[in-house]
Amino acid sequence: MNLDRAYENTAFIDGGSSYPARWKSQAEAFRIAQSARARLDQRYGDGRRHLYDLFLPEGAAKGLLVFIHGGYWKAFDKSYWSHLAAGAVAAGWAVAMPMYTLAPEARISAIVQEAAAAVATLADVVDGPIVLTGHSAGGHLSARLAVGDLLPKGVMHRIRRVVPISPVGDLLPMTQLEMNDILKITEDEALTESPVYLPAPRVPVTVWVGGAERPVFVEQAAMLARMWEAPLQIADKRHHFDVIEDMAQGPLLDLLFA
């Protein structure tokens, strides 16, 4: 099997190359509509990309949903995903979308630390329970934050649920891809930062993946669910790019706050 081809999404999705522009446009429209209750470009650290956007509901927030974006740890930023907050905000939750330093400027182990710093900062900004989620590489990061001592104990006690969406739970295959020229993942780092090789967290986890995704992503999701003895939800007919749409309105949104 050609692993590079196996982990390629755009070429195997009808109109795949059009999705980033579509996301960007929808996200910008949402930010404009929510401008009165949005806190944009807030800092959680000193780095150039240590920023987050926070979207607030009317009235007091029921809690905080943190969405960590994907892009194979080397692409995109928070400005592509704002519209995914619509359902949660309408349901009374605050939604935060942090970004992080991209590879090759940062290794994955450093990106994990940045994601933890973002969540710790946000926990001081919004009271109540916390739900962590993320897509693809962001699915990896949301899962990784659920284990170990990356987050302060007080923050961990507030985590109500973790929902990795189409996550890369096992980083070892990534060491064999051409993109590893950028990611620079070593075997040791893959073992240390792969959720599937770490103890199952004490917080509730549900793994979500599209039924029409590339087989390796279904396998990655299933492996994480199996190793952590967590429920696996397969969204029928959803591929890697539209699987996140159910976060704005649909069964994925319902799961986040179940």
Score class of each variant (00 low, 15 high):
Val168Gly: 09
Leu255Trp: 12
Asn180Pro: 03
Gly70Pro: 12
Thr175Asp: 01
Gly63Asn: 01
Gly169Ser: 01
Arg48Thr: 15
Ser136Met: 12
Val203Cys: 03
Val163His: 04
Glu58Val: 14
Arg31Leu: 07
Phe67Pro: 05
Ala258Lys: 13
Ala110Met: 02
Asp14Ser: 15
Val162Thr: 10
Glu187Lys: 01
Ile32Tyr: 07
Val131Ile: 07
Gly210Ser: 09
Gln233Ser: 05
Ala116Met: 01
Ala230Leu: 04
Met223Leu: 15
Met1Trp: 09
Trp93Met: 04
Ala123His: 13
Ala38Leu: 01
Glu193Thr: 07
Gln26Arg: 13
Ala137Pro: 00
Lys237Ile: 01
Ile13Cys: 00
Val147Leu: 06
Lys62Val: 01
Tyr80Gly: 05
Gly47Ala: 14
Ala106Met: 11
Glu114Arg: 07
Val168Pro: 00
Val95Glu: 05
Val216Pro: 11
Ser142Tyr: 06
Thr133Ile: 02
Gly15His: 08
Arg31Asn: 07
Gly16Arg: 14
His240Lys: 01
Val126Tyr: 09
Ile32Leu: 14
Leu171Asn: 08
Gly71Arg: 10
Asn9His: 12
Gly15Ser: 11
Gly59Arg: 06
Ser35Tyr: 02
Gln249His: 14
Trp81Gln: 08
Ala137Arg: 02
Met156Thr: 15
Ala29Ser: 13
Glu58Asp: 15
Phe30Val: 05
His239Lys: 01
Leu54Met: 15
Asp242Arg: 02
Arg49Asp: 00
Pro57Ile: 09
Ile13Arg: 03
Pro215Glu: 12
Leu150Pro: 09
Gly154Glu: 09
Tyr19Leu: 14
Leu172Thr: 11
Leu84Gln: 00
Glu219Asn: 09
Ala258Leu: 13
Met247Ala: 11
His83Ala: 07
Ile32Met: 02
Leu183Lys: 07
Val218Arg: 14
Ala120Cys: 05
His50Tyr: 08
Pro104Ile: 08
Pro199Arg: 12
Pro215Val: 07
Val162Ser: 00
Asp14Pro: 11
Phe12Leu: 10
His50Phe: 06
Gly139Met: 09
Glu193Asn: 13
Leu232Phe: 08
Glu245Tyr: 03
Ala61Pro: 08
Ile244Pro: 04
Gly138Trp: 05
Ser18Ile: 09
Thr192Glu: 15
Arg238Ser: 11
Tyr80Pro: 08
Gln220Gly: 00
Phe257Cys: 03
Ala85His: 10
